[in-house]
């Protein structure tokens, strides 16, 4: 079978099953990503504010938010008066 360049994933899919756990994790990431990005649509928020809005554990918010900063969806805003907590906002208004 000749395999076309740029479409090789199909080939491996036939030989290798993607674990359910991996699929679930990916879906969860997309869900959290959407939730965070939605929450930030209105206003820049701190992690504390995000946590309340999303009903998630704080350290998870830190992890996902920082990942979204890394992926270029979110950017760091200002720090509070105590120099303790930053706020975060959407990059280029989404």
């Amino acid at each position: 079978m000749e395999i076309e360049k740029g479409k090789t994933a199909k080939y491996l899919k036939e030989k290798r099953e993607v674990a359910q756990e991996v699929k679930d994790k990916q879906k969860e990431f997309l869900k959290i990503k959407k939730a965070i990005l939605d929450a930030l649509k209105e206003d820049a928020l701190t992690i504390d504010q995000l946590t309340q809005k999303l009903n998630m554990a704080k350290h998870e918010v830190v992890f996902y938010l920082m990942s979204l900063v890394k992926y270029g969806f979110v950017q760091t805003g200002d720090v509070d008066d105590m120099d303790e907590y930053f706020s975060y906002k959407l990059k280029n208004n989404g």
Partner: peptide, 23 residues
């Protein structure tokens, strides 16, 4: 990272040099 890849093929579709090769 094949352990965490869902084999959706999105990467190879955008790759400008066709360097991704799941075979």
């Amino acid at each position: 990272d094949i352990e965490n890849c869902i084999l959706c093929g999105a990467c190879e579709k955008v790759c400008p040099t066709n360097c991704i090769d799941f075979t």
